[in-house]
C-alpha cells in the first residue's frame, strides 16, 4: 500500500488515476455539463425562434412601448391569419417566410460556394451596424435557415438585409465580375454561375426535406403539396445566377420593424 491511501482528501484523484473506467465516466460527465446548460434551454425558452411546425411558438415576449406583447403573426408569416395567403401574394413586411423554390436553389449555391466564409448574415445592435446594414437581426429571421448562415467574418459586408438594396442587374454584373463594379473588391468572379442551369429535381427534394425537419420544419400549409409539385416548373430555364440573385433579394425584408419594440428580450 502506498501512502496515497493514508490521505483521505487525495484518495479520489488517486483512485481515478488508477482506474480507466472511472476516469472515463467522470470525464464523460464533466464535459457534458456546459453543452447541456447552454444548448437545451434554447429549444424551449421564448424568443429563440423555435416553432412547433404548426404555426405555434414557444410563448413570445416581444413587447411594444406600452408593454403589450406583439402578436407572433406580425413577425412570422402565418397564411391562416395573414391578408396574403399564398406564396405568390406574400409581400415584404408580412413576416418571416421560408424560401421559394428558386431562392432555395440559390441558397444551396450560396452554401456551396462558401459565401458565408466572408459574408455574415447577423447584424448586431450597434449604431454603426444600424447605419451601415439596417435593423439588428432577430431570432425568427433565421428560423427556416437549416444550417444558419450567420457567418463569423466580414471580409465582405454583411448580407442580412441586402434584399432590395441593389437591382437584379447590379447583382448580376457584380457577381460575374465584382471588380467591374467595385474596383477594390477581393471577391472571386462567379461568372460561371450563369452557365449552370438550376437542378430542378434537387430543388424539389430540398423543399420536401425542409418539411420533415425535426426542428423548425416548414409548415405544410406553406410548402403545400401543390407548391412542391409546381416547384420544378418555377425553376425551369433558370440559371444558378438567377437563383443566387433571387436568394440575395429575399434577405432581410420579411419583417416590418416598429419603433420602440424590443425584438430581442
Amino acid at each position: 500500500m502506498s501512502d496515497h491511501d493514508k490521505i483521505y482528501s487525495t484518495k479520489l484523484q488517486d483512485k481515478i488515476e488508477r482506474n480507466t473506467l472511472l476516469l472515463f465516466v467522470l470525464t464523460a460527465i464533466a464535459v457534458a455539463f456546459g453543452g447541456i446548460v447552454e444548448i437545451v434551454p434554447l429549444f424551449y425558452l421564448p424568443n429563440t425562434g423555435m416553432s412547433g411546425g404548426d404555426g405555434t411558438f414557444n410563448n413570445t415576449s416581444h413587447k411594444d412601448k406600452q408593454g403589450n406583447a406583439i402578436s407572433m403573426d406580425k413577425i412570422v408569416w402565418n397564411p391562416a391569419t395573414s391578408a396574403h395567403k399564398t406564396f405568390d401574394t406574400w409581400q415584404p413586411g408580412d413576416g418571416v417566410r421560408p424560401y421559394t423554390a428558386l431562392e432555395t436553389a440559390g441558397r444551396q449555391v450560396f452554401i456551396r460556394e462558401g459565401c458565408f466564409l466572408c459574408h455574415s448574415q447577423m447584424i448586431r445592435p450597434f449604431r454603426d451596424e444600424k447605419d451601415r446594414y439596417g435593423h439588428y437581426s432577430i431570432a425568427e429571421e433565421s428560423m427556416y435557415d437549416h444550417t444558419y448562415q450567420w457567418g463569423s467574418k466580414r471580409t465582405g459586408p454583411d448580407l442580412a438585409r441586402v434584399g432590395g438594396k441593389y437591382s437584379d442587374e447590379w447583382h448580376r454584373k457584380h457577381l460575374k465580375y465584382p471588380r467591374d463594379v467595385v474596383p477594390e473588391s477581393v471577391m472571386p468572379n462567379f461568372f460561371f454561375l450563369e452557365n449552370n442551369p438550376v437542378n430542378a429535381e434537387k430543388t424539389v427534394k430540398t423543399l420536401h426535406v425542409m418539411t420533415i425537419m425535426p426542428f423548425n420544419p416548414v409548415p405544410k400549409t406553406i410548402y403545400t403539396d401543390a407548391y412542391i409539385a409546381g416547384a420544378a416548373k418555377e425553376v425551369e430555364g433558370k440559371t444558378e445566377m438567377d437563383a443566387v440573385i433571387a436568394y440575395l433579394q429575399s434577405l432581410g425584408n420579411h419583417v416590418k420593424f416598429e419603433e420602440g419594440v424590443n425584438y430581442r428580450d
Binding site: E38, I39, L42, F43, T48, G49, M50, Q108, A139, E140, E141, S142, M143, Y144, D145, H146, T147, Y148, W150, K202, K205, T206, V209, M210, I212, M213, P214, F215, N216
Partner: peptide
Amino acid sequence: IPVDWATSYSIYSGVQDAMIQ
C-alpha cells in the same frame, strides 16, 4: 437530413444551430 449524395441540411436551424455549431 441528406437530399442526395452531395447535399444535406442540418436538422437544426437559426439560434439553436448557431449555438450547436
